[in-house]
Design a protein around this nucleic acid. Sequence first.
DNA 1: CCAAAAGTGTTATGCTTACACCCATGC
DNA 2: GCATGGGTGTAAGCATAACACTTTTGG
Lengths: 239, 239
Amino acid sequence: MNEPFPETKTHRYQYDYPRPAVTVDIILFVFQEDQLRVLLIKRANDPFKAKWALPGGFIGENEDLYDAALRELKEETNVSNVYLEQLYTVGKPDRDPRTRVITVAYFALLSAEEVAQQEVHGASDAGEARWWDIYDLPELAFDHQAILDYALQRLRWKLEWTALGFLLLPSEFTLSELQRVYETILHEPLDKRNFRRKVLAAGVIEPTGNMRAGDHRPARLYRFTATAVEMEQARRRFP
Amino acid sequence: MNEPFPETKTHRYQYDYPRPAVTVDIILFVFQEDQLRVLLIKRANDPFKAKWALPGGFIGENEDLYDAALRELKEETNVSNVYLEQLYTVGKPDRDPRTRVITVAYFALLSAEEVAQQEVHGASDAGEARWWDIYDLPELAFDHQAILDYALQRLRWKLEWTALGFLLLPSEFTLSELQRVYETILHEPLDKRNFRRKVLAAGVIEPTGNMRAGDHRPARLYRFTATAVEMEQARRRFP
DNA sequence: CCAAAAGTGTTATGCTTACACCCATGC
DNA sequence: GCATGGGTGTAAGCATAACACTTTTGG
């Protein structure tokens, strides 16, 4: 073996002009225990050691941005069936004190069913990972608070104009559960009758015929319709 | 002088991991002669030699993405007073055959007044530059057609939900002129009375008191209100 | 039988749409 | 006086918002 560099040295990539490092960070939203939560990872190293940060990492040499986000998500949370949408690209020169980093932020929605199936805690090699209530966050590393604020803004907006709410729920859900998702994300109470009329009129959900037995009167279960899913799939990607 | 490399060789920038090149490209819209137009530059070199491409270039080593877009715009068109908004980031590994390039696309709106003041043709050192009717475009280099399609979609959407139309007009304009902007961008005819009622009710424009003398009955001139401009300024930036 | 959540209709209001004619000016 | 674009109102239909009681179950 005739390595060009000794083993203790890393390989060097050389370019004629300076290049920034490019990462993807992911804002992964879930709805658990009547809370809207995001996944954060406690940083093991400086800078911002012991602060919480969005999961993410460097893009591969021959990897599409979307694929990189999927891969990071898979590495961190072991989920693959997820709604993923590009959010924004940040690139202030000093946002990472080590080197120039440009970050393409994605936001992701994970259904409750998949959250239950996955073991997310400690899944990261970057440090401790846990879910945080969006309305009770710790101090965040880098400019991640601003990215998260923007993600929440976009999520709210999409909720009002598209039919994204059910992506955070299991495949069968009651209208009250759906309403709680909306109320939690929008952070305001909604009128029950108007909510039901509106969501039913939109034609994005249909009754499954099943009922959810509970402590009290059983509730009709709904699923989202195939066309609603397709519409979101079509909208989510560039262009 | 003890240069580490001979003059004929460029300096080398070295990193431990591969890094993509990062560029900003700009979709610059103007409204001229009842057409919605974009600025394109004819490529002088391969790849895609003699094809038309969006103006853009590499980000500086210590330059914010937004600033890079502003600088490129200034270099290409000599304009600085412009509405600029981040559109999308594309990064398919093979979109540029030479090397891995990630492009942050911005879209920009230039008022008619400024277009008139600037000399845009030939302003680019990258080759011939000219305005193209958005509905009669040449074949484009790279994935620029897809980026442009997306920019147009976003422009239409913003036009319906915000009050962006007047950014393409001179500071004083008639309601008919404003309506023509909307009709051209949305690519559909609008009802004159409804259009006027709606735009006036929105409170984003106000009469200046002046009249435009023309071939026929003079038309009232309007300006957009200070609050409307501020609202757009506030909305445009991340977060 | 009581607590708790599910479910259900009507009215008033404002917004959107469709639609046709007179007005002021230059030539 | 005529051609050209500027300017104006109304009625119908539709979506939204406000609002309170009955139903079904488990304990």
